[in-house]
Structures are given as structure tokens and as C-alpha cells.
Design a protein around this nucleic acid. Sequence first.
DNA 1: ATGCTCCTGCGAA
DNA 2: CTAACGTTCGCAGGAGCAT
Length: 424
Amino acid sequence: MPIALVDCNNFYVSCERVFNPKLEGVPVVVLSNNDGVAVSRSNEVKALGIKMAEPWFKMEKIAKQHGIIALSSNYTLYGDLSARVMSILSTFSPKQEIYSIDECFLDLNGFDPKTLMDYGMTIRQTVKRNVGIPVCVGIADTKTLAKLANHCAKKGFAGRNGVCDFGRGTEEQLSKLFSRIPVGDIWGVGRKITDKLLTMSIKTVEDLRTADPERIHAQFSVVLGRTVSELNGVPCIELEDAGTPRQQIMVSRSFGATVTALEDLSESVAEFTIRAAEKLRQDGSVAASICVYIYTNPHREDEPQYQQSKIVPLSQPSDDTTKLVNAAIAGLKAIYRSGYHYKKTGVLLMGLQPKGSIQPTLFDDPVEQAKSDSLMSVMDAINHKMGQGSVGILASGIKQQWAMRRENKSQNYTTDWDELPVVS
DNA sequence: ATGCTCCTGCGAA
DNA sequence: CTAACGTTCGCAGGAGCAT
């Protein structure tokens, strides 16, 4: 029954520190795409009161005062280190669910409950030694409780060794602990639900755990009802096996600078469609339609606002970059209006299904289909080997005035021969 | 009344 | 120097539509 939730500490910052020891012990933030907001904070930065998702320009002053080092995000590096961490963690359980780039669940069913604390310590030490990333481990009988146990481990609520096993606590101890944790710290309880719970005087984890399940179900949703059950040790959320392909694929970006010309927007939409199509083929799926979005900057209240989207169905489900780009550009032309300062575009591939499942229609030309498949394979192979964007299609442009800002990105230490760290 | 699909809101990392 | 506020995914539930 026990489940472990292993979560990397301040993951992006920890990744940067692996290759740059000077970042150790000093305040470091990693910023989102476009150097927009804080997405990962070192403990020193958290201590300065800087919140998650705080915009960089709002903290710049305090950053200068305290010598905060702000880095642009380097997803190539984080993705690579994540794969290494996950691979090590997979050896600790027959069943692993990778939940996000920096955390996974491990099924510990059948392990001796008395040994789980030690097992958690071994997990921490192994990951730290082999990849250099610090992690915390939470152990409990449901996913929701394991998340909460991990939260306690991180906060040092149950000892300071980075492992927390609710199975080691008595009913009374847990109840006391839960009374100290705000209800909003629970997995699945966000801001809106927290606010509504507060009006019902449900303030802590313990308040929600002991609430009337019928009432919670009725006033909120089945989801929160399940959360209450899980808090009481009744599993409602299964460990998911990997390999279920995604149902939709989104690629969108804010621009470094605003853009007005249809031509520039087209380039960005083409570029994002190319990236989306790569992901689609990686999943072995085809898309039935593609949705294009364009936005002005909603934070500029002094400027005229415009946002629009359009869904373009494909004549038949496809994973062909060329067809997808043509559809996306057609959609863009339909919704584009001149005179606005555009800040962001995006594409969404919808109606995804496994490629093998589609039925050829009368209009299918098998020769054309084979040509398309082999062209896409060659393109993917070259881009994989030589780096993203080595081979594309002309439509995505080479000027890329809309490219995002990344003023302080670290190097691709682990994935690019030209950027290997120099050992002195 | 029933069963779809589409769209929006919410949460999470 | 300026201006500057993320991205991607799933689920639930309601709206809208067809039957």
C-alpha cells in the first residue's frame, strides 16, 4: 500500500548548481521563458520573501540589494538531468509514475513498513551522489498523503533528514501535525478552493480531513471529495502506468518584443507548429485538427486588446509538418487583424489518436504518405543529432524578431559537445 | 431524457 | 539603455447540439 513521492529540491536552481559551484550558498532564481517570472528559487531567495511566479521587474530592486543571481531557464539542461534522476529512481521500485519534470511516485507495496525511512534515506543519498541533485521523500498510503508527507519533509516538520513517513506516526501525532498545515498546501487545493473553504471555517489539513464527505462533494466536486478520502488513507487516485499518449499538444510562447506584421506572426506560428509536430510524432500520434491562438499583451491596459483563436480541421488526421503548418497559417490569416501589438501566439494539436488506428480513406495516396513519413523521419533525425531547428521549413523565418528574451542562460553542459564544462 | 462535443475554469509543476 | 508579468497538461462540469 505505501507510496513514495520523490521531489527534487528547488529543481532548476539545483540543476544550475550542479555545474556551477559558485551558485552554492548564494541566492539564485531561475526565470521563466522570456525572463518573465521566478519559477525556481533557492532557499536564500525564498528567505528574502520572493514568491513563486513573481515577475522579475518587480523583484529587480531587492535582487540588486542582496546580490541575487537570476538565470534564464535552460530546459535542455533540466530535461537531461531529470532523465538521469528518474532513471535512478526507477531502480528503487517495480512501478514508477513520472508526474512532472522534478517528481515521481514510487510504489512501495510489499516493502517492510519498518524499513521505509531508511529506504527513503538511501534514495536521497543515491540521487545526490550520482547526479548531484538533492531530493526529499514523502511516504504514505495514498498519493495525496505522500505529497503531503513530502511537503513535511521539505519543511523539516518531521525531523530534518529530508524523509517523512506518515506510516511511522500515530493517529494522534498525525492529527496534531495536520492541524498545523494550511489547507491550501494540499495537492488539489488551489487558491479558489482555499478561499471558499475558509468561508466554511475549514482552515487546516485536519479540518478538511475530518469534514463531512457528502458536504464536500456537494459543495465542491467529486475531485475534492476524493481528496478528502485520500487524506483519510483511502486510495482513490491510482498510480498511472507510463505510455498513455497525450490528448493534446500545446506549443506557445510570449515574444521578447511585440510584433504587428502578419509575416512575423506567421513565422512564429510556423515555428511552434514544427515543434508541436515533432512532439506528435514522438508520441506516435496523429492530429485531427489544429487550433491557432493570437494575443496582445493583457498587462498593457493602455493598449487596444485583441485575442482570438481558430480551430482548423485537417482533411484527415496527420502528423505531417507541412500539412499542419499550412493549416495553422490558414487559421492565422483568418483571425489576424492589423494594428495590434501582438505579444504571444500558440498552436494546439487536438483530436490526437494513435497513428496506427486511423483508417485510410479513398483519397489517400499511399505513395505520397510514404514520402511524407520518410521526409519527416529524416528531419527529426537530423534535428535530434544536430540540435533543434537545424532543418526546418522556410516558413518559420530566420530573423525571428519575436524570439524570446533569455539574457542569462547557462550552457548546455550535458547535451552539447561544444558546451562541455571546462575542467581546470 | 440521453449522449455527444466544445468550451471554460481550475489546479499543478 | 528601455521595458519588462510562463508554459503545458488533464479533468470536471456546464452549455449547446443532435437524436
